[in-house]
């Protein structure tokens, strides 16, 4: 084995990249978690076999590179029914309450390729609440939104999704929700009819609707604390009074002011209800 320590970007390199991207593309990574961001840039350089200068030249000269950059730098790894216990808690603690509404609007922020949104669709369907619900999925990345609209997942991924699904203790067969092909499974079209996917930037865009349920899990971990607070405030402002907010189980609401507007519904699964 040959010893090799990968060249890493310095703090100054990272800062200069953030500034360049802001100037050329108008996208601001300055409040992203730096360690994670740095690794994403290092990974991109590795995949492309580029130097830092190559990357900067491409950013400067190729406007179409922005979509590629966004796709590679933001983390789009997601799965259906990640944390089965979270879905059990939603079934138990949130859905019975939401059932009292005649129309339920759900916002999945940072929807990526749609796995979590379709998990919600299935959850609502299992609870007989699909017809009165509408699911909005937003992301900053057009390419992943196209994937989300298509709802096509590889059979390899489907196997692990099915394992998660079984652990949620739902009653039906997971395969009911998909049309299965040779290499892929596609979400059935009737499950897609109450969904809408669109671009929304959590850093710069505001409230666009009023929701009964907002879920944004494992997106805030990529932001620094100040930006996290700003985004959580946007979520609270986007909820109806007594609407519910779901964050990733290892994410925290650290602002006392924001916490005062929320009641904790499940501290382990990080589910909150807006109370003012």
């Amino acid at each position: 084995m040959t010893a090799q320590v990968k060249d890493s970007l310095s703090d100054d390199d990272l800062l200069s990249l953030i500034n360049l991207i802001k100037n050329i593309y108008g996208f601001d990574f300055s409040q992203y978690s730096k360690s994670s961001l740095k690794r994403r840039f290092e990974r991109l350089l590795g995949i492309k076999q580029w130097t830092l200068v190559d990357l900067k030249t491409t950013i400067t000269n190729d406007p179409s590179f922005f979509d590629v950059l966004l796709r590679e730098i933001t983390v789009n790894v997601t799965e259906m029914f990640r944390d089965p216990a979270f879905y059990k808690s939603l079934s138990l603690n949130v859905l019975p309450y939401l059932d009292s509404y005649s129309r339920i609007k759900v916002w999945n922020a940072g929807v990526s390729s749609g796995q979590e949104l379709y998990s919600f669709v299935i959850l609502f369907s299992e609870n007989g609440m699909f017809d009165k619900a509408f699911f909005y999925g937003t992301d900053i990345n057009t390419e992943v939104l196209e994937e989300a609209k298509n709802g096509i997942y590889s059979l390899i991924d489907m196997r692990s999704f099915a394992n998660n699904y079984v652990k949620t203790d739902f009653q039906r067969a997971f395969s009911n929700y998909f049309t299965v092909g040779y290499h892929n499974s596609t979400i059935k079209s009737q499950l897609k009819k109450n969904t809408h996917f669109s671009i929304h930037n959590l850093l710069s865009d505001g409230v666009f609707n009023e929701f009964q349920l907002i879920s944004c899990r494992n997106v805030l971990i990529y932001f620094e604390v100040e930006l996290q607070a700003k985004v959580i405030e946007l979520f609270i402002d986007s909820l109806c009074l007594f609407g519910f907010l779901c964050l990733g189980s290892k994410e925290a609401v650290r602002s006392k002011e924001l916490l005062s507007r929320l009641k904790v519904i499940d501290s382990k699964q990080n589910i909150y209800q807006r109370i003012k």
């Binding site: 978690s33 730096k34 994670s36």
Partner: peptide, 18 residues
């Protein structure tokens, strides 16, 4: 099921990348 990073401000960051 999370990657763990340490920021230079000496706080932890979690990450769910590949």
């Amino acid at each position: 099921d999370y990657h763990l990073f340490i920021e230079k401000e000496k706080v932890f960051s979690l990450d769910v990348s590949e």
